[in-house]
Structure formats: structure tokens, C-alpha cells
Design a protein around this nucleic acid. Structure first.
Length: 870
RNA sequence: GCCGGUGUGGCGGAAUUGGUAGACGCAGCAGACUCAAAAUCUGCCAUGGGCAACCAUGUGUCGGUUCGACUCCGACCACCGGCACCA
């Protein structure tokens, strides 16, 4: 049955769309998959959500584009190549072929004529082309950056290839290394990327918050601490949001990579060793944040810009070279990190802020501000130390509160030429160089005489050879003379081609525009992009909330500024779907290692306390339940969608995914649940066939109906209204399906076999089939025909609930006494407040609780509830 | 560590704008049909008390606002996602 529907759609080219300016477009996009080999259950969820929305919008009359492509560059292809010797290109193309078949078997309404793979030269040449434009405009530039270096394999490692600070293959301690890389000046767009978040009401609040925090605008003051070294007068610049605490500075700390640290280490071997230690180990923020704060004095001092005091300079492993200028001022009394640092190394702690408004609770209100502690041997951090307050021990600034103090101090520093107010961003420029093979080549040529020379446009694309097999040590491109040997386009001399490739986030930053015009070999995008863009609905995992979405917003702005497209924002509405989880079962082996078992191989029973008793089917011995987690190969808790589709059919799998949880929540896998979905499909099927096998029913419901028939019809139209709202506005599908299930339960009890009754039933079944068609399109396609129609269900406009059918004669109102439910009364639907109130007070159940007490207040909520307060 | 989220029966979830907590489904139990099984259908199913009508308790914990709180506010606990080279 499903194959037949799919063949029909294929034969009629049902999902092919063309630009039609006379019709309102709807661009529904799901994040394209990495072609890892097989479809993951998470993909199935993602694409089912997109398909439901696409098919629903199509029935709303929109010209719907739902494309699909492949995020085809990346590390897994190189890993697979190392494992089995197959070149990444071959592996990738095979995977694409297989997964495309899987997607087709799920019946998604995808326009396959627009398929794009990022590893295809037709696609990535435009990465290269735009990169060159960015280079011309100064958006792309070169500087050094830090990478994880495996000293044994002589190769750069991705973060995920670093395990506990060691290379995943060699086990060698990883080092931080500085190498030249290309960067994109995303920071130039930071103010706009931040401000425009307010103009994205179709994005989840939390994603906008995460992006805003990531961009991290903070207002503060740059403070220069003068020093003299090697006969030169210089400034050590720090950035602080707490300039009001500047009189409490007792040290400064610089990052290990800071030039001052390097200079000081020149004649201090101990310090040089410490700096080396800092450079070893991780470059990851998460690990840096939890590691022990360490430091070492440089022996150098700088001058406090306002007090003239000599301030020692330390090297601190917690200072980030990538934020501000890689140096911070240390105010131990009012910053938790500085406090810990000072305590550890015996640095003075000077309190310069007193609580505003006479704070600590034990203090009298209105009393003059009293310092928390003064140069006291504070040994324990208290969060209130970091709160804003009033300056003390700060000379002329004493008594000023936060804003005034910052203003006064910034003004004085500006007068001295030692600082100014400044806006600092947490966001830093995007490093796109990757020392890897399976990615888009960066189109540059390094010439010994001309320097870095861009590849001329007419020589694009710089083709990535597809026959290489990485071996884990270094980038194969750098060992392939046929790739890197070239002539300088400027002087014609021998030169070397850049062997770094681009971050795969580049590929995914604009693929959604290419879907509009995938066949254009003359331009990156054309007018068709202006027809389709922006994406009306984007659907993908919450894990992409920051990086992919931010890079895409940036890339779109760059393309806009180059006049390539008109939109500012790529994605109008965003739905971040939750992850798919499954049980994890494990057992600790004798050698201490943990072995994982597939939930399919485990029998589960519940004991009398509801606890889970799990045993391995093969040996009957117990296994440990570790809870529900995201599916992963290593935990052996993945579920193969293909097997499910073969066993239960695509519709059942789609129905289960949409019914089990709201799209934004995580979804817990359950085999029983799919079974239940299949059961529902059979029930629907049977219900339609039982009806039609009894003969043709009238397609028009007669005007004269019995009370029961009218009530049945009311439920049908109320359900339709709810489903329309749930899918169209609320984007929740589980409640829409639940509503249809309720309707089917009611319809099963509706046994009226009169002509009018059968007409009501016919209408009910037609509405059910249409309402479910975006979710379970195959069965609905077939059932629509069974119900006696020969038009295309997919293109039939979405049905509208009949307002006349929704009218109710009477309604039930619940009655509370002091907020507790004590009775129910049925009143006419048009009863006024006084009538409802009277009926409520007259109810015997209510009477019992009111008794002879005085009714103090009666709250009437129209059509819902009455609360009697006694 | 920082940022974001989640927490409701045995389980997944529902309650859309502060107004009946537990819709719908899964699992379970009982029954119908059957020689039997499967499939299907019907009923029961938060906890405690009660023969019952009914009563009390209950949405992670503690406190607050309100006639009324799963929903709003404050503090806390647990778990999950992201943290710039996984995609």
C-alpha cells in the first residue's frame, strides 16, 4: 500500500515545485543530514516534523518547497577511511545513495530535483568564490590560532579526538600549538547579530537567549597599566566591567600566550616551564573552566594608573588570550576567581566596595555604609562581595555608587590617556582553517615572492582530489604533490597551494539558499533565492542552537552586503526538536570494563515496588539499567529506522514519532509504542472499510438531525478545529493525534445506521482522513479513494470546521467552594452571570458545604467555573 | 565552571490566557469472542481511608502571591543540552 502511494507520487512528480510569483510560497526546511551511513532515528523525527508541516501548508494552498541535501564533508569519512581503507569520497557517495533510499521509503514530500551535496565541486566552488570576496573586503584574514597537537602522529586533533588530554589514537599528551589560520570577521557583525535577535519572534526564546549570551556584549572600561621594559614605555591593557573596584587591584594576570609572559620568561626558566605547562593540555573552554587556577609571578610590575602603586604581574592559566587583550586586573575582594587566586598565592585582598543602602541584614537600616572587611584576612568567599555597592577606601571616589564610580574613573583615565569606556564582545572571529583532507580547499597559493595569492576566479573550483586515503598522521593533501605543487598566478613562479580546508560549518551556512537554484553554474545564487528566502520554517536539533545558526545568520548578512540576496535573516521560524532517547543496559565485566547491551536483547520485568528488573536474554543474568540517554553506537542503544519501516510501515513509524512527545521535548523510544501506532492504523483502516462496505453514503449531511447526530457532528468539527490549531499554530502534533483518537472512540460508539447517521459518519471519516493526511500520508491517500474520491488528497484544501455545527445548547459549569470542587451544574449556553451563580448556589453538593456560613464572595468564570468563598 | 532547558500516575504525556490535575496512548488487571492462540471488542486502572455516597492528600523540595497555582515570584535539589576542530 505504501509503495503504491509512493509510486503514484513519483509518477506524477507530486513534490516538484517551481517558482510562481502569483502564489504565496512556503519554504520548509529540515537541517540536512551528515551522510553517516544509515538514517538515525533522530533524522526520522526531524524530517517527519518537517514533512507534516510541509504537507499541512500545501493543503493551506501555499507553494511549498521542501528540499533535501547532504552535509557531506567532515571527520567521520576520514575515520571510516582509516578503518577500512576506502577513500572518504567513495564512502560518502555510497552512504548518500543508501540514505536517499531510506528517506524515500518514509514517504517525505521532498523535491529531489534540488538535491545538493556539499562535497560536490558544483557546490563548494561557491564556498571558495565567496571566501575570495570576503578576502577582498577584509572580512577574511590571516592570523595565528591555537590547535590541539598530537606530537606522535604529528597531526592536529579535533576536540572530540582528545580524550582526557591525550590523543585518541596515540595516547600521547596533547599540546597546544599556534599555527597560522584564516578567520572570518564575524565580530564586525556582532552588534547587528545581537540586535536582530529581537526581530525574530518566530525563534524559541531560549535559542535567542543562548545566542545573545554567546555574542556576549558587555560594557566596561579598558584600563591601561603603564610599565617600562627594555627602554620602552608601554601599557598593559585590561578590560573590566567593574572599573568601580579599580582601587582594589592588588595584582594583574596575563594569559600564558600574552607577549608580556613570553618576554618575562626569556630570563626566567621557571616561568618558561610554567608557561609551557599552561600550553600543554586542553584548548577547550569547558575544561579550562573547571581546572585548578594556577599562576606564577613574572617578576615584572606595572603602575596603577590612578594610585601610582606598583602592581605585580602574574601569569594565570585561567586568563583567556581570546577574550579582550589577554590580561585581567585582579581585585580579590570583589571577584570570586581573583579571590581564590589571591588566597592561594598570598596576595593582598583590599575591600573597596561597601554594600549599598546599608545592606547586610544584621545592620540597621539607614546607617552609614560600613565596609564588609578591610584588608582583613578573609578566608571564605561570600557572593555578596561581588555585588554592586558604594566605593570605600578609594580616595576621591569614596561614596560613589556603581554607575557614578565607573563614570568618574573612566573620565579620569581618559584624561590621563590610560583608558576609556569600551564595549567588549565575548564572540570572537570564526577560525575556518582545518588541517584536514575531507573538506573544501581554501583557494590560496603561497608564493615565496608574492606571498599569499588568491586563486583567480576563473581557476575555481580548486578541486579536492577524491582518491586519497588518510592514515591519521597529518593531512594527506600536504603529502600530495599533485595537489599542492602549483604556479603562482601572479609571477608564474613555483608556489605551494594552501592545504588547509574549510570548517564544515561553512558548507552548512548557506546550503538553504542553494536549494533555490542548485543548477546554476554561473552564480552562487540567483533571483530564485529571493523568491524562496527566507526559510519560513526551519527544523533541527537544539544542539545547533548557537554555532550553526549564528554562522548562517552571519553568512547571510555577508551575502546580502555583497548584493547576492535581499534577506537579512535566513530563518523566519525555528523549531528545535528534542532528542530521541533509549534505555541503556550495561554490566561491569570482571576486568572492570563496562559492556553495553542492546535493549532488544534485554528482558524487563517490574517487581512489586515498580522497580525494573532487567536480565540479558541470552544468559538470564541481571544487567544494570543506566537510564534513558541519547542513542549512540558505543552504548548500543540505537534503533534502526529501516527495520521498523519494514516491520510496521512508514506511517506507523511516523505516527509514533509524532504522538509520543511534543516536538521540542526529548522522545523516549519504546517498541510497544510503535506497536500501538500500528494498532491505531489498523483500526482506522478497518473503520473506513466497514463503513464503505455497507454501501455508498450521502456526501451531504442533511439539515434535519437527531440530537445524537448533532452531538456527533459537533465533536467532529470541534476536533477538526483543534487539529487545525494544533498543527498550524501551536506546532504540537501529539495532542492533535490524541484528539483524533478521541473522535474515533466516539465514532465507534455512534451506532446510527440510518441514512442521516451514515452521512454524518461519512463526513466524520473524510475529516479524519484529511486531518491525519500530513502525518500518515500513505494510508490516507488510499483511504481517501476508498471513501469514494478520485481527486488528489494532497492538493485538496484543508477542511474548515463548520461554525454552525459547533454550537452547544447547554454547558456544564463546575462549582467550587473555597477553591475545592464540590459540584457541577448544567446551564443554558447563553445563561448570564446571575443565572449561573444562582444555579451554582442551588446545587445540593454546594449547599452541603456552604451550609449556614456567610457567602463572602462568588467568582464566576464564564462558561467554566464558579467559586463560592465562605 | 559559565549559558540554556527539563522535572506531573507503573511509563510517555494532557491541562493553549491563573480556573475541573491525570485527556490520549503504553504497560497491567478483569471479562467477551475462540477448541485454543493471535487479532479484535468491553470494563477497571494517582495514593490513603471507607461497604458506599464520599473524604483527605497529591504536579522535584521549601517558601510566597491569589478567591483559586502544574501554570506567576524567590530559594534549593536532580537530570539533560551547548561551550567555538563532532555535526
Amino acid at each position: 500500500m505504501e509503495a503504491e502511494a509512493q509510486a503514484h507520487w513519483e509518477a506524477t512528480g507530486a513534490f516538484r515545485v517551481t517558482e510562481d510569483p502569483t502564489r504565496e510560497k512556503y519554504y520548509c526546511l529540515s537541517m540536512f543530514p551528515y551522510p553517516s551511513g544509515r538514517l538515525h532515528i533522530g533524522h526520522v523525527r526531524n524530517y517527519t516534523i518537517g514533512d507534516v508541516i510541509s504537507r499541512f501548508m500545501r493543503k493551506q494552498g501555499r507553494n511549498v518547497l521542501q528540499p533535501m541535501g547532504w552535509d557531506a564533508f567532515g571527520l567521520p569519512a576520514e575515520n571510516a577511511a582509516m578503518d577500512n581503507g576506502v577513500p572518504p569520497a567513495k564512502w560518502t557517495y555510497q552512504n548518500i545513495e543508501y540514505m536517499k533510499g531510506q528517506l524515500k521509503s518514509l514517504g517525505f514530500a521532498i523535491d529531489w530535483s534540488r538535491e545538493v551535496a556539499t562535497c560536490s565541486p558544483d557546490y563548494y566552488r561557491w564556498n571558495q568564490w565567496l571566501f575570495l570576496r570576503m578576502l577582498e573586503k577584509g572580512i577574511a584574514y590571516k592570523k595565528t590560532g591555537v590547535v590541539n597537537w598530537d606530537p606522535v602522529d604529528q597531526t592536529v586533533l579535533a576536540n572530540e579526538q582528545v580524550i582526557d588530554g591525550r590523543g585518541w589514537r596515540t595516547g600521547a599528551p596533547v599540546e597546544k600549538r599556534e599555527i597560522p589560520m584564516y578567520y572570518l570577521r564575524i565580530t564586525e557583525y556582532a552588534p547587528d547579530l545581537l540586535a536582530a535577535l529581537d526581530r525574530l519572534p518566530g525563534w524559541p526564546e531560549r535559542v535567542r537567549t543562548m545566542q545573545a549570551n554567546w555574542i556576549g556584549r558587555s560594557e566596561g572600561v579598558r584600563i591601561g597599566f603603564p610599565y617600562e621594559l627594555d627602554g620602552e614605555r608601554k601599557l598593559l591593557n585590561v578590560f573590566t566591567t567593574r572599573a568601580d573596584t579599580v582601587m582594589g587591584v592588588t595584582f594583574c594576570a596575563v594569559a600564558a600566550e600574552h607577549p608580556l609572559a613570553a618576554r618575562a620568561a626569556k630570563d626566567n626558566p621557571e616561568l618558561a616551564a610554567f608557561i609551557e605547562e599552561c600550553k600543554r593540555g586542553t584548548a577547550m573552554e569547558a575544561e579550562l573552566a573547571v581546572m585548578e587556577k594556577k599562576g606564577m609571578p613574572t617578576g615584572l610590575t606595572v603602575t596603577h594608573p590612578l594610585s601610582g602603586e606598583a602592581i605585580p604581574v602574574w601569569v594565570g592559566n585561567y586568563v583567556l588570550m581570546t577574550y579582550g587583550e589577554g590580561a585581567v586586573m585582579g581585585v580579590p575582594a570583589h571577584d570570586e576567581r581573583d579571590f581564590g587566586f589571591a588566597l592561594k598565592y598570598g596576595l593582598p585582598i583590599r575591600f573597596v566596595i561597601a554594600p549599598a543602602g546599608g545592606a547586610p541584614k544584621e545592620q540597621q537600616e539607614g546607617a552609614p555604609p560600613v565596609p564588609l572587611q578591610e584588608e582583613a584576612p578573609a578566608t571564605e568567599w561570600r557572593p555578596e562581595f561581588a555585588e554592586h555597592g558604594v566605593c570605600i577606601n578609594s580616595g576621591k571616589y569614596d561614596g560613589l555608587e556603581y554607575a557614578a564610580a565607573v563614570e568618574a574613573i573612566a573620565a579620569d583615565l581618559a584624561r590621563l590617556g590610560l583608558g576609556e569606556k569600551q564595549v567588549q564582545w565575548r564572540l570572537h572571529d570564526w577560525a575556518i582553517s582545518r588541517q584536514r583532507y575531507w573538506g573544501c580547499p581554501i583557494p590560496l597559493i603561497h608564493c615565496p615572492t608574492c606571498g599569499d595569492v588568491p586563486v583567480p576566479d576563473e581557476d575555481l573550483p580548486v578541486l579536492l582530489p577524491e582518491n586519497l586515503v588518510p592514515d591519521g598522521s597529518g593531512n594527506p593533501l600536504a603529502k600530495e604533490p599533485s595537489f599542492y605543487e602549483c604556479l603562482c598566478p601572479r609571477c608564474g613562479g613555483q608556489a605551494r597551494r594552501e592545504t588547509d580546508t574549510m570548517d564544515t560549518f561553512v558548507d552548512s551556512s548557506w546550503y538553504f539558499m542553494r536549494f533555490a537554484c542548485p543548477d546554476n553554474d554561473q552564480a552562487m545564487v540567483d533571483e530564485r533565492a529571493n523568491y524562496w528566502m527566507p526559510v519560513d520554517q526551519y527544523i533541527g536539533g537544539i544542539e545547533h542552537a548557537i554555532l550553526h545558526l549564528l554562522y548562517s545568520r552571519f553568512w547571510t548578512r555577508v551575502m546580502r552586503d555583497l548584493g547576492l540576496v535581499k534577506v537579512d535573516e535566513p530563518f523566519q521560524n525555528l523549531l528545535t526538536q528534542g532528542m530521541v532517547l533509549n534505555d541503556i543496559y550495561s554490566r561491569r565485566m570482571e576486568d572492570g570494563r563496562i559492556q553495553y547491551f542492546s535493549p532488544a536483547d534485554v528482558d524487563v520485568q517490574l517487581d512489586d515496588k515498580g522497580r525494573r528488573i532487567a536480565t540479558l536474554r541470552s544468559d538470564g543474568e541481571p544487567v544494570e539499567w543506566e537510564g534513558m540517554r541519547t542513542m549512540s553506537k558505543s552504548k548500543k542503544n540505537g534503533v534502526d529506522p529501516q527495520e521498523l519501516v519494514e516491520r510496521y510501515g512508514a506511517d506507523s513509524v511516523r505516527l509514533f514519532m509524532m504522538f509520543k512527545a511534543p516536538p521540542e521535548d526529548s522522545l523516549e523510544w519504546s517498541d510497544d509504542g510503535v506497536e500501538g501506532a500500528a494498532r491505531f492504523m489498523r483500526r482506522l483502516w478497518r473503520m473506513v472499510y466497514e463503513h464503505v462496505s455497507a454501501g455508498v453514503a450521502a456526501k451531504q449531511v442533511p439539515d434535519e438531525l437527531t440530537g445524537e447526530q448533532r452531538e456527533m457532528r459537533r465533536v467532529v468539527h470541534a476536533t477538526l478545529a483543534k487539529v487545525t490549531d494544533d498543527i498550524g499554530r501551536r506546532r504540537v502534533f501529539n495532542t492533535a493525534i490524541a484528539a483524533v483518537m478521541e473522535l474515533m472512540n466516539a465514532l465507534a460508539k455512534f451506532e446510527d445506521r440510518t441514512e442521516a447517521g451514515r452521512a454524518v459518519r461519512q463526513e466524520a471519516l473524510e475529516i479524519i482522513v484529511q486531518a491525519l493526511s500530513p502525518i500518515v500520508p500513505h494510508a490516507c491517500h488510499a483511504l481517501w479513494r476508498a471513501l469514494g474520491h478520485d481527486d488528489e488528497l494532497m492538493d485538496r484544501p484543508w477542511p474548515k470546521a463548520d461554525p454552525a455545527a459547533l454550537v452547544k445548547a447547554s454547558i456544564e459549569v463546575v462549582v467550587q467552594v473555597n477553591g475545592k470542587l464540590r459540584g457541577r451544574v448544567t446551564v443554558a449556553a447563553d445563561a448570564d452571570e446571575a443565572q449561573v451563580r444562582e444555579a451554582a448556589l442551588a446545587d445540593p453538593g454546594v449547599q452541603k458545604w456552604v451550609g449556614d456560613k456567610v457567602v463572602r464572595k462568588v467568582i464566576v468564570v464564564k462558561g467554566k467555573l464558579v467559586n463560592v468563598v465562605v
